[in-house]
Amino acid sequence: MRIRGLIRKEFLQIIRDPSSISIAFILPIILLLIFGYGVNLDAKHIKLGVVQQQPSVESQSFVSRFHRSEYFNTRNYLTVNDGQNAMQTGDIQALLILKSNFAREFHQTDAAPVQLLVNGVDSNTANLINGYVQGTWAEWLIAYGDARGIEFSQPVEQLTRIWFNSEINSRYFLVPGLIAIIMTLIGALLTSLVIAREWERGTMEALLVTPVSIQELLLSKVIPYFVLGMGGMLLSLVMALFLFEVPLRGALAWLLLSSAVFLWVALSMGILISTVGKTQFVAGQIAIIVTFLPAFLLSGFIFDIGSTPLFIQWVTHIVPARYFVALLQTEFLAGDILWVILPNLAALVLMGLVLTLIVLKKSYKRLD
């Protein structure tokens, strides 16, 4: 009966507290809209300048490939100097120069009748532009040879097939990872702030002098925010599937189980933070530094963990969001791949057990 009353009291507090509802339901909507529509890692509509030093049928055929592509917005320049000036002023991102001997030497494997100048300030975009141009060149060579019965000798024939995200849509990559960030905020930040608020208002002291055990008190804090967190997760899932049309190739049961385990870890972290910082300001700062920033930067949400220094890769193993992001991306884009799901899920379970034991050890019914 006591635990039921405490849980009811927490639910009533949540209903009366607009900030809890906002963090659980309004914040996910805002973050998903910002990242889903505002952040795009795809390189499309690239501003490409083209210089044909001696126009020919072959050079026009090659350039027409870029005119018809959704990835490029082409601009023609008469001279190389004009194109380079346009790059310096930021009017174009890359300059494609077709040399005067293009028509004569493009079929020679040791010739380079095409020069590409790329703005390398953004290295990721520069690499994408270089790859797109090389791919367009290879496709045009094949099409040109097939139309004329010419076989171009190539040392390697490249056949490319994109797995898991065949549309190469960065939204499919970002939205599942963002769910991990949202649940980190709901679980760790919200829980730590709410408990710290009770310390500030003196209501926690009133609870500590009651016959309620510390286990009952902690459980009454966890259950309502677990329900709130899963509600926020379901809202994020609905938006991902129906608004952003991210495919869900795995079983919903595995996704919900993974989310529940991660939320358990996040709630445990929030309660542990509240035992250290008993004011909302301190608890909020600790939660951002310890949970949100690592989840954002070291989970693989945006940056590939494998491309980071070895020391950083080791550090990511203590970041719970790393395992949850891997689970989300696997469930959404690849499916029920158990040799990926089970190890990551086991790591989260282990973290949850360790954090729960620490919370129980650090929590006691004393005011000091």
Rank of each mutant, 00 (worst) to 15 (best):
T89Q: 15
Q53C: 03
D91V: 13
S100H: 07
F66V: 02
S59D: 15
Q60S: 13
L95G: 07
A94K: 05
L96Y: 11
F106Q: 11
L48D: 02
V50A: 08
T79S: 13
T89M: 13
E58S: 05
S56K: 04
P55E: 14
L48M: 10
E70M: 00
K99P: 02
M87A: 08
S69Y: 11
Q84I: 13
R68Q: 13
V63H: 03
V63C: 11
T79K: 10
F66P: 02
I97N: 09
L95K: 07
D91T: 14
L95M: 07
R65T: 04
Y71E: 15
L96T: 01
F72D: 09
V57E: 15
K99W: 04
Y77F: 15
V51P: 04
H67Q: 13
S64L: 04
L98Y: 09
G90C: 11
L96C: 05
P55A: 10
P55L: 08
K99C: 02
Q52Y: 11
P55Q: 09
V63Y: 06
S69L: 06
E58I: 01
R104V: 13
R104P: 03
L48W: 06
N85W: 14
G49D: 03
S61F: 00
R65D: 01
S100L: 02
V57T: 12
F72V: 01
Q88I: 09
E58N: 03
F72R: 02
V63P: 05
G83F: 13
T89R: 15
E105G: 00
N85R: 11
E105V: 03
G90Y: 09
F106P: 03
Q108T: 09
A103F: 00
H107N: 11
R68S: 10
A94S: 12
T74M: 10
Y71N: 15
N101L: 06
G49E: 01
N101I: 07
Q53A: 08
N85G: 03
Q52N: 12
S100F: 03
L48K: 01
L96N: 04
Q93I: 00
M87E: 05
Q88R: 12
I97Q: 06
N85E: 15
Q88P: 05
D82S: 07
D91W: 14
Q93D: 11
A94H: 04
A103N: 12
N101Q: 10
D82E: 15
L96I: 00
G49M: 03
Q54Y: 10
N76M: 11
G90N: 13
T74K: 06
L96K: 03
V80P: 02
F102I: 06
I97M: 06
S64N: 13
F106A: 10
